[in-house]
Amino acid sequence: MIFFICFISPVISLSSSDWIISWIGMEIGMIGLFPLLMMNYFSSSKESMMKYFLIQSLASMMMFVSGIIFFNNLEQMNMINYLFLMSLSLKLGIFPGHFWVPSLVNSLSWVSNMMLLGPLKIAPMGFLSMLILSNDMLYLIMLLGIFSAIIGSILGNNQTSIRSMIGSSSISHSGWMCVGVCFGYIWGYMLGYLIILTFMLLSLFMVDYLSFSVMLLSLSGLPPFIMFLMKMKILLYSLFSLEYIVFFVLILSSVISLNFYLKFFYSYFLTNKWNSKFLLSIFCLLNLLGIAFVCFFESKFFCNKLLIYFYQFSDSCVDSFQQTMKMLVLCT
């Protein structure tokens, strides 16, 4: 039931045409997470639940107040936009409001981490992609994305526990998603990240360290794995928009974060707990499908300028979801 609530919340908030219902969907997800936080056996989980509750309710309040003004007055007020962005950054754990993520993730069980870092980020990302109404907001969100990519990778180098490492890597990946919001391919990236994160935590839960280490390498975005493809798509789109600075900073962040991914990869790869489950090793192999994806499905990479036009066309198809949602919300 609780899992159901957590999964239904992004569905409610993305499919409703009224912004208050989407907000309510987000809140339902937050409330559905509390029992999961309570159920685990860490003594620190009560404290972390309080921390999560306070921060998230502050963010929801800010979002409600700024949302009323934002959605009812169609004329743009900068302060309100910034307030809305601030509340989203608290919700998502990106740059100005990222401080709660590593400490909270450190004291939770794998399943609640899976909920917290995965499905509960979908609805705020949808709101974030709605915020891009002007060039200023686009650059602001891009800037926040860049900063959180860098800060997540620096934070990850300071961590010694695997949980807080996952937390900081999620800050960094949310930064990549923000850049994706600005230039396209957010939902593809989100899908890849969710799949990898879910199977990573599942393999930790089932003590299958071989699969876990492969998933870690995949999360770092090294080439033969599928997250490389997602990262490359985001870089490609930012290049199409001629944003070279974004490209450099994102590359820098992925190099910095490679260091800690490798560190944790060593310690998990060199253990002897290799009782690899059949199911998980299948997913491990699926992870390698990045190359096959390029070879067979992305055949536009092989061909000519003609296909680049198709490419840009399909780009707009991918983001049509986002645009439809924006239009729907604006109509109400």
Partner: peptide, 13 residues
């Protein structure tokens, strides 16, 4: 990678 992507963008292949 950046150069290759940029190159393919301007060259179309």
């Amino acid at each position: 990678l950046m150069v290759l992507l940029y190159w393919s963008y301007s060259e179309g292949s």
